[in-house]
Design a protein around this nucleic acid. Structure first.
Lengths: 341, 341
DNA sequence: GGTCAAAATTTAAACGATTAACTTATTGAA
DNA sequence: TTCAATAAGTTAATCGTTTAAATTTTGACC
């Protein structure tokens, strides 16, 4: 900037005024300064600007596991919205699930890792943080950053004072269960995900509500515990099909477990959907690649990212919004895996 | 830092010396300074440090589409390696494939977008850049940043002066084709990916080499053009099975297209692997969820990230390494989708 | 007690922007 | 003519570190 000033015969202050456009500068000098900038290949030093302005235009995005399925889409959504407003994304990946998926009870250890991640982002002086939380809200001891706005995405926070953007698990599970009921199914089993996950709890609630409303019984052996993985879907389906009264429809809480259902059903040489109807959840890529195509629920992952970023930006703009929990609706994708009974 | 200095009765320089540990400080004063730091909740301002040191400890990671399958794993690998060395990741997501997958010929437009992404990272004063490139190396006009080391990951660069970390497509395709040949197959067809992709070209080369070596003919109708997506796998398989001499084995260049194969084969009420053997590529999650399990090639995505980050770090440490192309080996995953003939 | 090198500490100049406060020039109304 | 208001541009402080160079303190040795 000094160089530009010298070249165009003005002070650095004037150069800065030209660049920011906030102060009056005569057309004549503006022209000269801009020409000088053309000539040299000057690049504004954003670091110096950040130091002076106390604002980095960087948002920290904290994820528990970037490889977890919905995460990249959410990050994409965040990125897209932030980009529009001139912010960049500093990514912090905790690799939490990889380490602790099956030792989920070590909650305090989780909290430590999460806090360290938050601290790292704060130390980098990010303007705000979006935490893409997949874990159970029962993880306590998470230290709310002071002076750095924080928005939760995907799961909601245990802290009522914080803002979170999530989607409507309860209602979506309710709707897809209704779909099966309307097709005449009365024996509808469910394969749940991991016990500590809020998604699993909510989806179970939606299922139960639909069954109750329709006056259908839910024998306890119709509620199976899986772990979100393919194999548990197959195992639990095997168990279901061995019951005295096997279900005519199975609701797997994600598509991967639904794929497991498919395998177990086909191994017994039963047909989908003629013998057993199957529905999944999440609309993962696999859903459209199974044969027959899997009816499932599409999650608005990108929108979660968009909305979370939007919430954060409004707070950064100085709007004094009260903390809110936003629930985005999901969409049922009908394919060929269910049939009338 | 001023506050600390005042509290412990020394100059800010001494505080800095204590913190950096590079200069001699008497035990006595060190103790006092550290106590003062305990007392206040002082946090080093990394922005000021960056400005003074001309080093941000941030690496820019440029991806064409964060939602593309191998990308999160590669980013994870990068992240893990960088974290160990105290670097953070600034993510720039171009959303290129989403926009241009099917208009891939608009190469100059691609280059513009890529260059803008690189520029954004440079402007943020990152210490180095890793470009996770999925596109064809024929995209020219990519502006090499000056003064910011750049390493390519996944695909290699058209520029011979640059360093890239990729995996051994040719050899892996060769090996998996050999596997089919050794099982006695003589009619082996291949469903290729998108024409502009370097992965597709390399895999085809490996396939051809194996067939040639075994003295097996490759009729042109055995080489089908897919687009990496599920549906093209099904379509092309349909075409193959309608041939006068249908293949006894099909090599799909990725698992998604292999899933398409499965569907087309099952629609004709043929059995895998008894009637037709199928192999895929990539070892996506879907490979283990298909029935029967798909034999495929596992890509060392995380290692690509690790290695690329490692290469970059060595350059940042001042090592004067010549540009290299690193090829990581892949591993064949045998499941149940192939049978002796 | 004096000398001198080594150790400890401070001073002050960077790094590259922004901006409040100030100076000077210009315009226009009373 | 005078004065105020506005415009255009400059000066210099500031953001919070690091670090070369200068200065002071320490302590060993004669």
């Amino acid at each position: 900037m000094k160089e530009i000033a010298a070249l165009s015969g003005v002070s650095v202050a004037t150069v800065s005024h030209v660049l920011s456009g906030k102060k009056n500068v005569s057309d004549d000098t503006r022209e000269r300064v801009l020409q000088a900038i053309e000539l040299t290949n000057y690049k504004l030093n954003t670091i110096a600007k950040s130091l002076r302005m106390n604002k980095t235009s960087i948002i920290g995005v904290l994820v528990e596991d970037i490889c977890g399925l919905p995460v990249p889409e959410i990050v994409d959504g965040i990125n897209q919205r932030l980009e529009e407003s001139g912010y960049q994304v500093l990514l912090s990946n905790l690799r939490l699930l990889q380490k602790l998926y099956n030792q989920y009870e070590q909650l305090s250890q989780c909290a430590d890792i999460i806090n360290r991640g938050l601290q790292l982002l704060e130390d980098a002086r990010v303007d705000g943080i979006i935490y893409v939380a997949m874990h159970d809200r029962s993880i306590g001891g998470i230290h709310q950053p002071v002076g750095t706005p924080l928005v939760y995405a995907y799961a909601d926070s245990a802290d009522p004072g914080s803002t979170s953007v999530t989607y409507d698990n309860v209602n979506s599970a309710y709707e897809i269960t209704r779909l099966l009921i309307q097709q005449g199914h009365r024996q509808i089993a469910i394969i749940a995900g991991h016990v500590n996950s809020p998604a699993a709890t909510h989806r179970l609630t939606g299922y139960r509500r639909a069954m109750d409303e329709a006056g259908l019984p839910v024998p306890s052996e119709y509620i199976r515990r899986g772990d979100w993985e393919y194999h548990s879907g197959a195992e639990q389906t095997d168990a279901l099909l061995s019951l005295a009264i096997p279900p005519t429809a199975i609701f797997a809480m994600n598509d991967l477990m639904a794929a497991g259902c498919y395998t177990a059903i086909k191994r017994r040489e039963l047909r989908i959907p003629e013998d057993v109807s199957v529905v999944g959840f999440d609309n993962q890529e696999i859903a459209s690649c199974l044969f027959p195509g899997l009816t499932t629920v599409a999650l608005p992952n990108k929108e979660i990212g968009h909305t979370a970023a939007g919430q954060l930006l409004r707070r950064l703009d100085g709007e004094m919004l009260p903390p809110t929990g936003i629930n985005l609706p999901c969409r049922i994708i009908q394919r060929e895996s269910t049939a009338k009974r």
